[in-house]
């Protein structure tokens, strides 16, 4: 095989991979919308904002190397990477992914948030695939920090990924953790900010401005990787790759996202931060997503 030929194969397989990720993200959107609609509870807008980042982490590959090492069949495996969903209210997106990957039966999604069910309103450790309780805003990065410190102490080279929301950055604890991560030079820690600019009460810059996010982390001693297309898998993958390569300091990927992404009437509306879709809204949203999915296969 000539060099140009092998390059062509690599590029084509990468194109296929991107298409696979787009497909996953559409399927999972439908899954999470159905589950939250059935439960009549759930943070729809936040989940739709975060789902592409989560898909990149759980399904993404750089040149055949997965972004995250994990095996649903081996909980507690020593060679695994870890993920902490600090913006725990986006858990419908994460649960849909964990169910799809076989961490627990897909059937559980039918009982989302119901009494006596596995899947709680915010992630808890008893759910297979979840390592830390999260959802109390600002906790996740501290937990990820402790985990990254413990990995370093164990001379273990695996990584910790953590996803926070931009509104969550208003919590002081995040900055305590940011300071400590730089102090301990945790290059095994990658933070991703789901920067959709909206929180439940309205635009982040109106409620309590957190900008400039990149400059803030920079001044805390972090490597910063801005990603303008927070729903573009190519950009997300390359951003994460750059973040992972950083040495002797933690890295943050600040991903510009759209709250409610993928459902036209819900995009960029803080109203949809924490509400499920009604049946009428589902009748508009789901066929549109299914249509998009069908177009991908053409």
């Amino acid at each position: 095989m000539s060099i140009s030929e092998s390059n062509r194969v690599i590029i084509e397989s990468f194109r296929d991979h991107l298409k696979f990720l787009r497909k996953k993200s559409l399927e999972l959107r439908i899954e999470l919308l159905k589950a939250t609609n059935k439960a009549q509870f759930g943070h729809t807008g936040s989940s739709l904002s975060a789902v592409d980042i989560l898909v990149t982490l759980y399904y993404g590959k750089f040149h055949d190397r997965p972004v995250m090492q994990f095996d649903p069949q081996k909980p507690g495996w020593d060679g695994q990477d870890y993920f902490v969903l600090s913006k725990g209210h986006a858990c419908p997106a994460l649960y849909a992914i964990l169910a799809d990957l076989g961490f627990f039966p897909k059937e559980e999604m039918q009982h989302l948030f119901q009494m006596n069910s596995l899947l709680q309103g915010h992630p808890v450790k008893k759910i297979p695939g979840i390592v830390l309780n999260a959802g109390s805003l600002g906790h996740g990065l501290s937990g990820a920090l402790g985990l990254a410190m413990a990995l370093k102490a164990d001379r273990n080279s695996n990584r910790v990924f953590c996803l926070v929301g931009d509104g969550e950055l208003q919590e002081g604890q995040v900055w305590e953790a940011a300071m400590a991560a730089a102090h301990y030079k945790l290059d095994n820690l990658v933070l991703i900010v789901d920067d959709n600019g909206l929180q439940i009460e309205g635009p982040t810059r109106a409620v309590m401005s957190v900008d400039p996010i990149v400059d803030k982390f920079e001044s805390f001693g972090w490597k910063t990787v801005p990603v303008w297309g927070g729903h573009n898998f190519e950009e997300l993958l390359s951003g994460l790759e750059r973040a992972i390569e950083v040495q002797r300091r933690p890295a943050v990927v600040v991903a510009h996202t759209i709250k409610g992404k993928g459902v036209s009437f819900a995009e960029n509306k803080s109203f949809y931060h924490g509400v499920p879709f009604s049946d009428e809204e589902m009748a508009v949203a789901v066929p549109a997503l299914e249509e998009e999915l069908a177009l991908l296969d053409l």
């Binding site: 390592v131 937990g143 402790g146 985990l147 410190m149 953790a177 300071m179 102090h183």
Partner: peptide, 21 residues
């Protein structure tokens, strides 16, 4: 031995992470 400085909330959040290992 890890010093977290005057940041108790972060220290306790980090303790949760340590237990995973």
């Amino acid at each position: 031995y890890f010093n977290f400085g005057n940041a108790e909330s972060n220290m306790i959040g980090a303790a949760a992470g340590f237990t995973i290992r």
